[in-house]
C-alpha cells in the first residue's frame, strides 16, 4: 500500500511534466518525481522495528536488526546529483526568460517560428 502511494506521487509528477506549460512547473514536476522514487527505494529497504544503520560500539549483537543501508547510500548520492541537475535546469530557465521574456513554452515556440 505504501508502495502504491509512492507510485501515485510519481504519477502526479508525470502528470505535471506532460500537461503543464510553464518551465518552472516542469522543473517542479521533475523534483516531485524524484522525491517519489527516493522514498520508494528507502521504503523498500525498511525493516520493521529496525534501527538506523549506525553501529553502537558497546554492543555487538545488534547488526541483525538494522534497516538496509544500501538503498540509503544510493539515494544519498542521487539527492546530491539531482540537486545539481535541478540547479542547471533553473539557470537554463533564467536564460530562456532573458531571451524570450516568458516562461511559457508554447509562446517560445511561436516566437521561434515567427
Amino acid at each position: 500500500m505504501i508502495y502504491l502511494l509512492c507510485f501515485v506521487l510519481f504519477g502526479v509528477g508525470m502528470y505535471g511534466l506532460l500537461v503543464k506549460k510553464n518551465i518552472i512547473k516542469l522543473i517542479m514536476s521533475m523534483m516531485i518525481s524524484s522525491y517519489a522514487i527516493h522514498i520508494f527505494l528507502i521504503a523498500s529497504g525498511f525493516r520493521r522495528h529496525g534501527r538506523a544503520p549506525v553501529l553502537d560500539l558497546s554492543n555487538n549483537m545488534q547488526k541483525a536488526v538494522m534497516v538496509d543501508p544500501l538503498p540509503q547510500t544510493l539515494v544519498l548520492i542521487s539527492i546530491i546529483v539531482g540537486a545539481a541537475g535541478i540547479a542547471l535546469l533553473c539557470v537554463v530557465a533564467i536564460r530562456l526568460y532573458q531571451k524570450f521574456g516568458t516562461f511559457d513554452i508554447t509562446k517560445m515556440k511561436e516566437e521561434i517560428e515567427d
Binding site: 527516493h38 528507502i42 538506523a52 540509503q72 539515494v75
Partner: peptide
C-alpha cells in the same frame, strides 16, 4: 520515520 537520518539531513 524510515530510519535514514543521513538522508533526512541532506534532503
Amino acid at each position: 520515520m524510515l530510519k535514514a537520518p543521513d538522508l533526512a539531513m541532506t534532503q
